[in-house]
């Protein structure tokens, strides 16, 4: 069920995704591994895949969400967060 027409924006760049795919999976297939600035020398990235490590937290339409838990949707504005500390 791949449709090439559906995409969301990641820091302004259109990222295509498959139906039901999470933001994290679509970014990985697009070759994007660094998901945010993070803290110290830890960058934002996909790590646990099940919503526990919080390392993949990105801004989705202005709200912080784990990219690995959030389904991609057409037109979502996804952005890297400068710092993931609280």
């Amino acid at each position: 069920m791949t449709s090439t027409s559906q995409a969301f924006l990641f820091d302004g760049k259109a990222i295509p995704f498959d139906s039901n795919e999470t933001i994290a999976m679509a970014l990985d297939r697009a070759g994007i591994r660094t998901l945010g600035a993070g803290q110290g020398n830890s960058t934002g990235r996909y790590f646990c895949g099940i919503g526990t490590c919080q390392a993949c937290t990105v801004s989705v339409d202005g709200t912080r969400m784990e990219a690995c838990l959030t389904p991609a949707r057409i037109g979502l504005q996804v952005e890297r967060i400068a710092s993931v500390s609280l």
């Binding site: 998901l35 830890s42 990235r45 996909y46 790590f47 895949g49």
Partner: peptide, 13 residues
């Protein structure tokens, strides 16, 4: 902590 290093379960997911 580098991007590209994941847990085995994360890879399985």
């Amino acid at each position: 902590q580098l991007p590209g290093v994941v847990t085995a379960g994360g890879l399985q997911m």
